[in-house]
Design a protein around this nucleic acid. Structure first.
Lengths: 110, 110
DNA sequence: TCCATAGTTCAACTACTCATGAAGCGTTGA
DNA sequence: TCAACGCTTCATGAGTAGTTGAACTATGGA
């Protein structure tokens, strides 16, 4: 992930509804959720939801596939990992204070 | 860090100049850099720079102190770590794919 | 006290993002 | 083939973020 991609991803995440959508989709893995269920969960009108989903998709953070008349969205977890990787490595240059904050989450020995 | 703080931080980071500023400040640690040097490094007019610095400061990502007639800015690395922690833990719920992407940066044994 | 330096704040403008409702497109079942 | 469903796209308007240059504040030195 380069700076331009990271900026796209950060912009996409910097919105309450879209962050909510991602938090909803990550645990669902590859199965994902249809747009309608996402809209109900985040209490969002169809057209607005579609806008937010397309923003997330353009940023590479989610992907869509059609299943009959429904469209299933799922989180692209590699891209999310890539963003965090970018923040840690390229942006924070492996800074000790920053990385120490993250170790507990990753079951580390360091 | 809660969702509101994370959203502030993400918004602040989602701008090329501000991301550049942070990448500049992190390696400087507590010493930080005066506004003038930051402006020269990121090629940014004074008033615009001041605007971006205040955005980063309001988001809690940098802090300012006066030194004579200069104002020294330094990265608040704990907040940066907190944001990454939030993305890993609260947003991605410790997802395996996401955390695997980050392990290499942290010198992990897992 | 006066001037120069270092930054910040303000006002005006531009550009972009977001929300809304209506119209449109693709799919399914009668 | 027609209506219903699920979702997307479009047009519009409101609000917000970003840029610019001028004016302002604070500090230090002559």
């Amino acid at each position: 992930m380069d700076q331009a991609q990271a900026l796209d991803a950060l912009s996409a995440l910097a919105h309450e509804t879209r962050l909510q959508i991602l938090r909803l989709l990550v645990p669902c893995g590859q199965d994902g959720l249809p747009a309608g269920e996402i809209g109900a969960a985040v209490d969002c009108a169809a057209s607005r939801l579609s806008f937010h989903l397309s923003t997330l998709e353009q940023a590479g953070l989610i992907s869509a596939r059609r299943d009959g008349r429904r469209v299933i969205y799922s989180a692209r977890r590699q891209q999310l990992g890539g963003l965090i990787h970018y923040l840690l490595n390229d942006c924070c240059a492996g800074d000790r204070t920053v990385s120490a904050m993250c170790r507990a989450e990753l079951g580390l020995c360091g």
